[in-house]
Design a protein around this nucleic acid. Sequence first.
DNA 1: GTGGTGATAGTTTTT
DNA 2: CTATCACCAC
Length: 782
Amino acid sequence: MAGLNDMQEQACEHVDGPLLILAGAGSGKTRVITHRVAYLMEHEGVNPLNILAITFTNKAAREMRERVDLIVGDGADRVWVSTFHSLCVRILRRYADKIGYGKNFDIYDSDDQKSTVKSILKDFQIDPKRYPEKMFMAEISKAKEKYLSPDEFAKKNAADYAGTKAAEVYTEYQSRLKKNNAMDFDDLIYKTVELFEHNPDVLDTYQNRFRYIMVDEYQDTNHIQFLLVKMLARKYRNLCVVGDDDQSIYKFRGANITNILNFEKEYEDAKVIKLEQNYRSCGNILAAANAVIQHNAGRKDKALWTDKDAGEKISFEQCDSEYAEGDMVASRIKTLVRQGVDYRDIAILYRTNAQSRVLGEKMVYANIPYRVYGGTNFYARKEIKDVLAYLKVINNSTDNLYFRRVVNVPKRGIGEASLSKVESFADAYGLSMMDAAARADEIPGMAAKTSAKIRQFAELITSFRDMLADGESLDSVYDRILEDTGYESELIAEHTEEAMTRLENIDELRNKVVEFTEDNEEAGLSEFLEEIALVSDLDAMSEDDNQVKLMTLHSAKGLEFPYVFICGMEDRVFPSGIALNSDDPDALEEERRLCYVGITRAMKKLYLSAAKERMMHGNRVYSDVSRFIREIPPMLFEHEADMKNMAKRRESESVDRYNRGEGRRDAYGSSYGDTYAGYGGERTAGAASGRSYGQKNPYSSYAKQQSYGQPSSQPSFGKAFVVNSVGKPDYAVGDRVRHIKFGPGTVEALEKGDKDYEVTVNFDRCGVRKMFASFAKLKKCE
DNA sequence: GTGGTGATAGTTTTT
DNA sequence: CTATCACCAC
């Protein structure tokens, strides 16, 4: 086959039976998948309808489709290429009735999820301060990822109070979604698996349909996705999965790396092909990537190689602040452009979205065209959600959540008190709130004035429905909504910059409506809503605009750029403070994989940068250069000598610290000890040079306690910590204790960890908190 | 029922 | 620093 190396060719020509392709970064993975599709069709005569390719993002799906098109041309459009989520939606739209849902179910995004959980907590009188809704959302999501029903989840978590509560919320959450005929993201997959499990005939249909299945980014699949694939592939076993364990960066979202590591156990006759030749990056970049990832334990052994030249050395610069960093990046970009590089060939990557603000500002200053991807998703913006909620209500949605969202936007004088009357009326008669609103005059105990307002709203919605039924186009109804509801005029009247942006966004959404109606003449409102339920603005990335691209490292996966800047190479930024503090050693490894992903995005030249100080959560914070920088051999950098010096300086610094009794933190390496002792040290240094620190910073207050609150004879942060951590606290479960910040409370649990006691306290003022005993500095109340 | 105020807590990555 | 929330005065 043309243009493929031996391994790639083997991968393409393996037709029957399970196949695992371990494809390193830049090893031509997409190429292999697309060529394999082509091979199946052209050489094996496989009907394109029988091929399913699952990708992780819509963008990847689109790209793959285009590339298959290029190779085979005819029939490629009949290959089913989609993401897990859209695949499941398509199946469920057809069969949702078999599992008790309406076929026109709504899809809840995380915002909708959150408001649902919030309202449940309110009804259950669970204090969100003590048990934040986020926690429940995470629990529910985790349960679904493991394919645990509310009942099973309840059984598993019956032992402790929090688990029981979580189970109750999960149960209620599920029943509310069902009542609203809605599914969240996790449900889409969960319910598909459930559908298959209870309807073997349906499963059989799809097994026959998808005789050849390919899954991209297999390292990022979670358990339920694994189950889904396993079910679909069970009959013909023509399953080809492609992935790279080194690029698994979504564990926080439930991705299960063992899916790929155990593929050979699951499918014993699996053929395994490793793609180790990298076609993307030049030698120095690849060497850096290899050096970094080698610090991870427990990975499948492989080493990428390239026959490209070493290329340019890697640039590293430690700037004074995040602003200086932004300036530096801007000036480097200008230099590149002067040398003839296109803006579109440059990407700026960072760990957290928050970093994009300063970088974006600096691009504006420097007159560099740029675009920030990710961040607040376009479809998650308030005004967009409002307008979409209108559309959803108009689209005969039985969902009360969307009704509630728009019924009083703009203000119509319909408040919570009236709404709960509408809701109980609806519940009593088995109606949706929308239907109940149309009969508002029948609702007992409602003032005539109020019920008139509510009926008016219902009539407004009905008028939009009628327009659509009369065949008016989607975009003209869209305009009427903005006008007749007064939404637009309210924004115009505001006369603020923010309102203008919102109007622009609403206009942008209108463009999407028009675009959609042009592309899909047959389709109506519900098809439109469906189309946009599963897309993010990352999917809209276009090659046409000659702009620098700014995005998180996560978003950059699967992409490549000739010139890549990675900013914020500082400990506690990247790797993130959370990973550094985590007691799960894999957290740091996941950060390292992320670093590996970032480095391997670069083709020609890689620029790494750090800031000595930056604003974080409203406080100036001083940071060390990221440990990942030190994992790259100095010889790969432009200023080799400087890098060596930096390494040396650090060494002597830590020897110094050790002699002063601080170095122990390295030896004991407790997560908390590391961070807080570090802060203590930095803080003193900073104070000495006359810098002021925000007193509100929780870190500095800990640091303060640490350094001054000890009866130790030396100002030795690490040491004090170590001494303290070994001893058992003088309080026990049930004792009353006092915390310097949180006040009085009762000890609920005391567990011995590796290096420290972990104590759970129920504080009178702020609820249950878990902390390390040596840091909590709890005083027993006699 | 609305709108303003002040306080407060939370800030990793996203299909 | 910012988004959200509880509370209070109309």
